[in-house]
Design a protein around this nucleic acid. Structure first.
Lengths: 229, 229
DNA sequence: GTGTGGCATATTGTATACAAAATGCAACAC
DNA sequence: GTGTTGCATTTTGTATACAATATGCCACAC
């Protein structure tokens, strides 16, 4: 026996529904604050209310949905303060991941990251923004993976999803892009040098730049929504 | 209108069931690895399967339960590695909370913490372990509250619950107790001095002591359970 | 004995039915 | 007009019924 202990993944309906909803939220099809009508969503997803409601509970646990008793679920709408807290936490998580990664990184890991960096520079040179975003995410995920702490990775992913659900359109200009690419280069160098403190600082500063850009775009909607979490 | 915008908290059945189950798990009535039979639990909690299953989803999101498709839910059984990762993460969270707290603490906060410290020393002097535990928790919660980041607090609480579910009985002796009380004293001093780095180190070291004691007791059950998260 | 097939039972997964609460609207009072 | 009451409708909350899967056991072959 022992097929490597990997039980073939058969998605149950609540899991499938949650995955679909998560995507809809992160892609911005379901916007922050949107009310989710159960009956309506059931028809669209082709499931009955029972599994859908279980999906709601899962997403609420991830902080993507807010459920109000007798008043249904709605997509989380982070206030400016909420976003600030989420980014602050994200900085701590990324910084910690960097420290761990620097302590545990292997030569193979570094080689892999250097490849990603080359691809990123290419995307940058070709003005290929979608590819840049994809590789950017891959690099950050890789650092997290190198950190080798599943609890951290899980927390990071969940919070990341919540931030993506913000649907920010920060004014992304050439100067910021150039800077970001350069920062990634520095990160990989810090990692290769096993300089945890430097990598930590780089990651936190890197994120802070994004945070400021995002919070800038949220300036006006200040007291609007605002949920507890 | 405006009754301070505090909608009276009416617990829905899934929430109530989840709260009850969470308590049962943390108090050790439901032990790690225990299989949860839906029908059975329904009778004991006096709810039907629908709300119970929603409660399961919530607790699974908190990492207190593991759900296997078609095979039901069971209380999470952390492997030694899982516990190590959880503690590692916890250290990062507490350390970060300490840094934030040092930057944001007010004189009132410090006064409150000093009071707690006095109570802790009293409990220590009277050999009152339950009270000590209560105040210990209060101090750590207070530091987290002073940090002023709800996202951090939420993550901290959730992970803390998972660790408590381990049901460790680390050999707690007089020497360790003395040391712990002294460490708390140092923490509050570091906080009063607004020395974030020092507080961070103290909190991490403080936790590491507990971690080592716990992992020690888990030495034998090494490869036994082991869940993914 | 060991292992296999197949059935009965138990358990979980999903859909639906019914209950309770919230919502919207119209009639009415003032 | 403004505000309020009560009812019809919609929506959510919970229980239950039915379907699908897993589990345990026994008979049987070898």
């Amino acid at each position: 026996m022992d097929g490597s202990n990997i039980p073939i993944a058969r998605l149950t309906l609540p899991e499938a529904a949650a995955e679909r909803l998560r995507a809809l939220i992160i892609e911005g099809v379901l916007l922050p604050g949107a009310k989710l009508n159960e009956r309506e969503l059931c028809e669209q997803l082709g499931v009955s209310r029972t599994p859908l409601r279980e999906a709601f509970r899962m997403l609420a646990g991830d902080g993507l949905l807010v459920q109000l008793p007798n008043r249904g679920a709605q997509v989380v709408a982070l206030s400016r303060e909420d976003a600030r807290h989420a980014f602050e936490m994200m900085g701590a998580l990324e910084g910690f991941a960097g420290e761990l990664a620097a302590a545990r990184v292997t030569e193979d890991d570094i080689a892999g990251l250097r490849t990603l960096q080359v691809e990123m520079e290419a995307a940058h040179a070709h003005d290929d923004l979608p590819t840049y975003y994809r590789i950017n995410r891959a690099i950050h995920d890789a650092i997290n993976a190198v950190a080798g702490n599943p609890v951290l990775t899980q927390t990071y992913r969940t919070l990341n999803a919540r931030l993506h659900a913000l649907r920010f359109r920060s004014n992304f200009n050439r100067a910021k892009w150039d800077k970001a690419v350069a920062e990634h280069r520095s990160m990989i160098e810090a990692l290769a040098a096993r300089d945890g403190a430097a990598l930590r600082d780089l990651l936190i500063r890197h994120l802070r730049a994004k945070q400021q850009a995002v919070l800038e775009t949220m300036k006006n909607q200040d007291v609007l929504g605002g949920t507890s979490l």
